[in-house]
Amino acid sequence: MYQQVAWIVSIVLIALLAIAFFYVVKHSGREGNGAAVAAATGRWRGRLLWGVTLLSIPVVAYTLTELPYARSAIANLGTVEVQAKGYQWYWEISQTKLPVGKPIEFQVTSADVNHGFAIYGPDMKIVTQTQAMPGVVNVLRHTFEQPGTYKILCLEYCGVAHHSMMTELHVVAQ
């Protein structure tokens, strides 16, 4: 969902920006009252600053309420633990058949260099991700809502066969 939101919001805002530029460039030819234009510019500057600030505060506050960072100290009853380790250039996953509707805790690390542990849904869109870093365990919690074949793709460049570093998860109804 966030992919579509990001795309639509970006396109709409960039279009508004483009309209502002076209309007101003179109009206750049005939010289106007410099003082009046400067005053209008000041008003628009204030509107932009206040507008963006007022818009950003609720967006930032709302989006910070749902953070993906699982605290390893918080134990979830019924969580399925999966160890995932990245190697140049393959994944070692302790369990690839996973249940639908149950929280899964991926404990992600790397044996060599940095990798990116991204879970792609059956529609080949990212559903969640974390980094796989040597010497560090990143805890990623996710509950699969739909059964199907999910793919793990490496999203952190890790050498010549980076693009081949894929494996599959099979999410099944219980």
Partner: peptide
């Protein structure tokens, strides 16, 4: 225009919830 336009998707990607599905794409 280019600088201003680029900042829009950049800031959106700086949102943690968005970054979770956009990072390194």
């Amino acid at each position: 225009f280019g600088w201003s336009a680029g900042v829009i998707p950049a800031v959106i990607d700086g949102t943690i919830a968005v970054n979770q599905v956009m990072h390194n794409t």
